[in-house]
Design a protein around this nucleic acid. Structure first.
Lengths: 96, 96
DNA sequence: ATTTTAACTTTGAATTTCAAAGTACTTTAA
DNA sequence: TTAAAGTACTTTGAAATTCAAAGTTAAAAT
């Protein structure tokens, strides 16, 4: 068991780290919100949300608000758990 | 200025994060030590140290110990500074 | 009616990651 | 003493990932 075993590969990237951080404190965030908060381009954000969705760390819900499409994201129970583990591992790694 | 502006891309990867963490508390670490602590393969570790070297975040020194080649790494002043900034940014991001 | 804006998705090129194989010795064992 | 095994990396190139440009579809503004 190495030093970085509990560092989760899925959260290695700063945009995915950002997405999860946002979804830990907000029940939902939509595409636009994530995009603005993270300063990501559309395609880039889409691929990172897709990666987290694939791991089942976030849930994607598509709906219409009025007549406009809207995609909103939330963290799954698994995602929250794994993210917490990741943070703990990070703290252990850097906190000494 | 977005949420993740101060998250340093160079430290996004867990192996590079591990290397820097080790070099923050140890003046030096050699290839073998990094490899064991991080559980990385040779080629993989080499490419991550190269990436950090390119940014001038670590210093690479090659010497012989007895008759064996030995490569040791240390964090540069810049590397330490940038890593601290990164950690601060991480804490801000995840600490609520 | 036409242009602009919004909210994404698709695409594929560029970059990054990774481990297998290679290099250049040194050490051990026969 | 010479062959086999180990050490300490480096090189290579295939695979995976990242990224933004361009595309799509429809709404809003002019």
């Amino acid at each position: 068991m190495s030093l970085i075993d509990n560092i989760n590969k899925a959260f290695d990237h700063r945009i995915r780290l950002g997405i999860m951080s946002i979804l830990m404190v907000n029940d939902y965030a939509d595409f636009k919100m994530l995009k603005e908060l993270l300063g990501a381009t559309d395609g880039n954000l889409a691929s990172h949300t897709k990666a987290l969705e694939k791991e089942e760390y976030i849930l994607v819900e598509k709906q219409f608000i009025g007549r406009k499409p809207n995609t909103r994201y939330s963290a799954t129970k698994l995602g929250k758990l794994q993210f917490k583990k990741h943070i703990d591992a990070l703290e252990k790694l850097i906190g000494k």
